[in-house]
Design a protein around this nucleic acid. Structure first.
Lengths: 152, 152
DNA sequence: ATAATTGCAAATAGTTTGCACCTAC
DNA sequence: GTAGGTGCAAACTATTTGCAATTAT
């Protein structure tokens, strides 16, 4: 990672910490060592780590940190809006017999998944092969929102 | 569900069974009662069921069906291309400190997730509130493909 | 001081595996 | 008849919960 990227990253972490401070004060949450350490570790990586990846990274410097705390703190960070969970659905496998390209709508209220098959959304142009070696082959859009049942 | 929809559905199921027959013959897979029943049950619903939902539906009529078989058969159906797993990542929570809208690329080879922040993909117009009551609030695109590491 | 937070251990949920029995071909 | 498929029980992995000990304010 080069100098400029490093700088961006540390600025990003700094901003995150400020956001975290503000959110904690606003809601009367304690700014514990664990919370800050986990936030900084998360903000310092771009690989969307799992609980375990963060735990492995942290419990070395941070003797006595528990996996449970990593779970709970990440939950809290998401609640106060400084982090995001990027697996949209609960951690259960779901299957679909329709193998054609279509998109999904997930209700924020109940978690139910519906199909979105408006062909308008099949017109996204896939990026060509990237200079850095990434080859894009397909895509799928996940919409989030509120279903009729959860609006009432 | 009205008559026309019912018809569509049964035609869909029929086509799926044919696809299944062909795929089994082609690969020398047995067409067991369980496989067919699970395929038909999956093709008969549009709610992207979990293993448990299918199991609950099936093991009533189908005394003695095991949950393990549902897992294994769904796996097989995905392999032979007649079904699709719609949870893209493995069943682990992943987190991101970047809460701004951006998209993800998942490598089919190694499962690693990278960010895609080309602003071109932030221009999708969200559908307005639907007559049927769905309210679309946000979206995120998941690209699939092959990463530099897995191309070599 | 005291209310919130953490760590541990045990519980739970989803999924996978080993192996003996069964069934489609 | 035999290879492949299924069912059961046990193992495993990810996650959650109850509770006593600890820490931030």
């Amino acid at each position: 990672m080069n100098r400029a990227t490093d700088n961006h990253r540390s600025e990003f972490i700094l901003r995150k910490e400020q956001q975290f401070d503000a959110a904690c004060r606003k809601r009367g949450l304690s700014q514990t060592t664990q919370r800050r350490a986990i936030l900084v570790a998360l903000a310092g990586r771009t690989d969307h780590p799992t609980v375990d990846l963060l735990y492995e990274e942290l419990h070395q410097q941070f003797k006595g940190l528990s996996r449970t705390t990593v779970y709970r703190v990440l939950e809290t960070l998401v609640e106060i809006g400084v982090a995001r969970r990027i697996t949209s659905m609960e951690a259960k496998a779901r299957f679909d017999a329709d193998t054609s390209r279509h998109h999904h709508f997930i209700c924020q209220g109940c978690g139910n998944v519906s199909d979105v098959r408006d062909p308008a959304f099949n017109r996204i142009e896939l990026p060509a092969d990237q200079a850095d070696g990434f080859r894009f082959l397909d895509y799928s859009i996940t919409f989030t929102g509120v279903c009729p049942h959860c609006r009432s």
